[in-house]
Simulated scan of single mutants.
Amino acid sequence: MLLRKHRELLRFAVVGGTCFVITVAINYALKLTILTDKPVSAQAISVVIATIVSYVLNREWSFRTRGGRERAHEAALFFLISGIGVALNSAPLWVSRYLFHLQEPAVTRLTQEIADFASGMILGTLLAMVFRWWAFKKWVFPQADARPRPVRPTRSERAALRAAEAQAEQDRAA
């Protein structure tokens, strides 16, 4: 019952976990190759890509029954809020690197990477996630049950449908 009651939140968390993996993979791919001197840019780019994936997954799965806005308006709000989320996600990394100077040569490479991961990937992601959950429900997908849930036929209804389809096939063959 608890899982059913918090289905949206659980789905949002699964989407978030998926997008977290996407963010980490792209961030480190960029940071360790073409953006070695620009960790905040690598972080922001990876978050933007994951945000696009997030929109599709959240709209079609996490909040599939919520709505209340025209699609273009909904998408614009989603990306505006996600843009704020990118800033929130990048802020702890910026503070770590440029205010606390947790970067080479002031610290070891290992310390820098641990600080980057803790501030950018963990703290930044959590901060942005809490903000997005609240903002998506409040502004992007404000109305519960605005879109109908997909109706799943019962087992007996599926059996009856298969029998009817089989009968129709036999009638066509005859």
Score class of each variant (00 low, 15 high):
Pro39Val: 07
Leu127Gln: 07
Lys138Cys: 11
Ala29Val: 05
Gly85His: 04
Ile34Glu: 15
Ser119Met: 09
Gln103Asn: 00
Phe117Ile: 00
Ile22Asp: 06
Leu88Glu: 03
Arg97Tyr: 03
Lys137Asp: 11
Val40Lys: 03
Arg71Asn: 14
Arg59Ser: 13
Gly85Pro: 00
Ala25Phe: 06
Ala72Ile: 13
Gly124Thr: 01
Thr108Trp: 04
Val56Ala: 14
Thr23Arg: 04
Tyr55Ser: 09
Gln143Glu: 14
Val107Ile: 09
Ile49Leu: 12
Arg132Asp: 02
Val21Ser: 12
Gly68Phe: 12
Ser54Leu: 06
Ala50Gly: 15
Thr111Asn: 04
Met129Val: 03
Arg109His: 14
Ile52Ser: 08
Gly16Phe: 05
Pro150Lys: 12
Gln43Ser: 14
Leu32Thr: 06
Thr108Tyr: 09
Gly68Ser: 14
Leu99Lys: 12
Lys31Pro: 02
His101Ala: 14
Thr111Tyr: 07
His101Asp: 15
Phe131Gly: 07
Ser41Val: 00
His101Gly: 13
Asp116Asn: 12
Arg59Val: 10
Glu104Ala: 11
Arg132Ala: 07
Val47Ile: 14
Pro92Arg: 00
Lys138Arg: 15
Ser41Thr: 04
Asp145Val: 08
Val14Pro: 00
Gln112Trp: 06
Gln112His: 07
Leu77Gly: 10
Tyr98Ser: 11
Ala50Val: 04
Ser119Val: 01
Phe100Val: 06
Ala106Thr: 11
Ala135Gly: 15
Ser54Glu: 03
Val40Glu: 11
Lys137Leu: 11
Leu127Ile: 05
Glu74Thr: 12
Arg71Ile: 13
Ala76Gly: 12
Phe79Met: 00
Gly83Asn: 13
Met121Ala: 14
Asp145Tyr: 01
Leu77Cys: 04
Val15Arg: 01
Val107Arg: 00
Ser62Lys: 05
His101Gln: 14
Arg69Gln: 08
Arg149Leu: 14
Ile52Glu: 04
Thr65Val: 05
Ile122Lys: 09
Thr111Pro: 05
Thr125Gly: 07
Ala76Lys: 07
Ala91Asp: 06
Gly16Arg: 08
Asn58Leu: 09
Lys38Gln: 15
Ala50Tyr: 03
Ala44Pro: 01
Ala44Asp: 03
Val24Thr: 14
Val48Asp: 10
Phe20Pro: 03
Val24Met: 03
Tyr28Asp: 00
Pro39Trp: 00
Met121Trp: 08
Thr125Arg: 03
Leu32His: 09
Glu60Ser: 13
Ile84Trp: 01
Gln103Val: 09
Val56Glu: 13
Gly16Lys: 00
Pro92Cys: 10
Pro150Val: 10
Leu32Val: 00
Glu70Ile: 10
Leu93Phe: 02
Pro105Gly: 09
Ser119Phe: 05
Gln43Asn: 15
